[in-house]
Write a protein that binds this DNA or RNA. Structure first.
Lengths: 219, 219
DNA sequence: ACCTGAACACCGTTCAAGT
DNA sequence: ACCTGAACACCGTTCAAGT
């Protein structure tokens, strides 16, 4: 579950970092569709080296996304014993959205298919479990309604990020505003109507059983 | 502002429809990255015909998105004189999310760059103005808080759609649940904290002044 | 072990020839 | 006017040769 990969030769490790850094800055500047050639150039390595470290362009992007998620995870862990549980949870969400605003289109890259990626799913599970810990504390403190789960929260935040991405050029404050709406939805406010469906559980995030079931059904 | 294009020869018009239909079903079945060749084949036309009707693959996708948005716009107009203003607004949102769930990844395709597309921006403006009309009625009826605008609502719905796209395979009910959270955020509930930023206005959706300003700044 | 860049394959797009 | 499909250009990926 931790951040160790099989150890690489010193120069290989350095190249991996250079590629990650070059890709991060280029993607943030100009979006996800810049060519891999340019990335290899900026990193100062050959095209082949990129594909030695990352099986495909998508895997490279995934690695960057995982780094971003790890930042959130670490920050979340640091907030686990903050005095004000509600402020801790919403503070993390604010920071996440802020991070997203600085970059451009990275967090967004998390559709169906990306969850097939082993690393991304692992990071997702970790992130949700940290979020869950923060959420439970906030609920115990009476700052958040009891009928929501960490997956609900993550979904709303991802939604806010996505929405922000579309409209931040027309209103840079839209991210913070959307987050305030998320907060309103999650507040422990009497008079809230009950939610449809059931409270999502951590166990739901297992390997893509849906996909294999679908294949079986079509046979 | 209306749905008339310069009239085409009968066979051309028929080919355009065939391409739109073929693309819609193929994209829904297998996602946005299927080749244009396959679409032309299913439509029963040559590759070149596709590019005669749509300047690029992106424009083809945009045309489909516009059709979807027009469906929402028409449905919204039909709800303008419904007796229960609150139910009308949230009913439309529910239908929109349902539509999204049936398809796969179409509505989602609305990032920054897409708004540069003239047709999409026009449809967006229309959609928001209908949403605004429904929203104002719902607010007058006391069903929705007064400090939100149509853009806020659209952002939250787009967020819910996006979130749903990531997790509907693990929990098909997530869309309805997210919408209930949106409803909770928008409800006229005393005890809601004030929102950061200002209430977005319709006038904000003007041509991409941000982009040209950016270009000017870099000179 | 790892690096390199020329070569390959694939796919969006164009265009000369046809109706 | 519009259609067609072979040809082009571009970009992700591979691999034989090098260190």
């Amino acid at each position: 579950m931790e951040e160790d990969r099989k150890p690489l030769r010193a120069d290989a490790e350095r190249n991996r970092r250079r590629l990650l850094d070059a890709a991060t800055s280029i993607f943030c500047e100009r979006g996800l569709e810049v060519g891999v050639g340019e990335i290899a150039d900026r990193a100062g390595v050959g095209r082949g080296t990129l594909f030695r470290n990352f099986p495909s362009k998508e895997h490279l992007i995934a690695a960057i996304v995982v780094e971003r998620m790890r930042q959130m995870i670490d920050r979340g862990r640091g907030l686990l014993d903050a005095p004000d549980a509600g402020a801790a949870l919403f503070g993390l969400l604010d920071e996440s959205v802020g991070l997203q605003q600085a970059d451009r289109a990275l967090f967004d890259a998390l559709d169906d298919e990306w969850l097939a990626n082993e690393e991304i799913r692992a990071a997702h599970v970790e992130l949700i479990s940290v979020l869950d810990a923060l959420l439970v504390r906030a609920q115990a403190a009476g700052a958040v309604r009891d009928d929501v789960g960490a997956v609900d929260v993550l979904m709303m935040v991802k939604g806010a990020c996505e929405a922000m991405r579309s409209f931040q050029h027309v209103d840079p404050g839209i991210g913070a505003r959307q987050l305030d709406l998320v907060r309103a939805a999650l507040s422990a406010n009497p008079g809230h109507l009950p939610l449809r469906g059931r409270r999502p559980a951590l166990a739901d995030l297992e390997p893509a059983a849906a996909a294999s079931a679908e294949v079986a059904a079509s046979a």
